[in-house]
């Protein structure tokens, strides 16, 4: 026998189900009056520094069908690469947003500022990115991925460097669609499958 490890085990995940909006985006599903507004309506407030951008996309299943019932949460640094709560962070950037795929078209949309590069342990520098967490009916544990931006310098990004099959790096790149407009489609399974993370 050995000493027991004095640790607990994480609670097991379960799918958010098709009615996740009731709890997380009640106004989106027509439940008004319980909360003043849905949580995470915008990751920025008036006066946030940096370049305003809009990112749009769909989430496709293995058959190429766009999900209509998924919810996405995003978390990002401010234009200078600082997260809320860190010294010098932009007080107008909360960094957190929550949005649903449209019930008819499946398209989602995020209005924010473009984040700056982030410094981590050991002098590592992460290229500008937005972390995503995706939940939906049929997804048993939330999927982590990241939006990077095509055209930025990605040469030293430690996460992108870890992707062995280089063509898969492209699945994490938002594509420009005009002034301040970007597209980022997510493919859950199969051809062009998005890189999902375990961080």
């Amino acid at each position: 026998m050995v000493q027991p490890l004095d640790t607990l085990t994480e609670t097991a995940s379960q799918t958010a189900g098709p009615y996740v909006h009731i709890g997380c985006l009640p106004s989106f599903t027509g439940i008004e009056g319980v909360y003043p507004e849905d949580l995470g309506r915008s990751p920025i407030a008036e006066g946030a520094a940096g370049e305003r951008i809009t990112i749009r996309g769909h989430i496709y299943d293995a058959t190429g069908w766009a999900l209509r019932d998924a919810m996405i949460e995003s978390w990002q640094a401010d234009a200078a690469g600082r997260y809320p709560g860190q010294a010098g962070a932009d007080p107008a950037v909360t960094g957190f947003a929550r949005f649903a795929c449209d019930g008819e078209s499946g398209e989602w949309r995020l209005d924010t500022v473009k984040p700056g590069p982030v410094r981590g342990r050991g002098g590592q520098v992460w290229a500008p990115h937005i972390a995503l967490w995706i939940v939906a009916r049929g997804i048993n544990i939330g999927l982590q991925t990241r939006i990077y931006f095509a055209g930025d310098d990605h040469a030293s990004d430690p996460l992108l460097a870890r992707i062995e099959q280089r063509p898969r790096v492209e699945t994490l790149m938002a594509r420009p669609e005009g002034e301040g407009a970007w597209r980022f489609d997510i493919r859950l399974r199969g051809e062009g499958e998005t890189v999902f993370l375990d961080l």
Binding site: D61, A62, T63, W65, L67, W75, Q76, A77, Y83, V118, R119, G120, Q124, W126, H129, A131, A136, R137, G138, I139, N140, L143, Q144, R146, P158, L159, R162, I163, L188, R189, G190, E193, T194, V195, F196, L197, D198, L199
Partner: peptide
């Protein structure tokens, strides 16, 4: 149809997480 077929990319957590 909604579960990834390919392995997750694992590494140590970063400031984003």
């Amino acid at each position: 149809t909604r579960a990834p077929a390919l392995p997750l990319l694992s590494m140590e957590s970063t400031p984003s997480e």
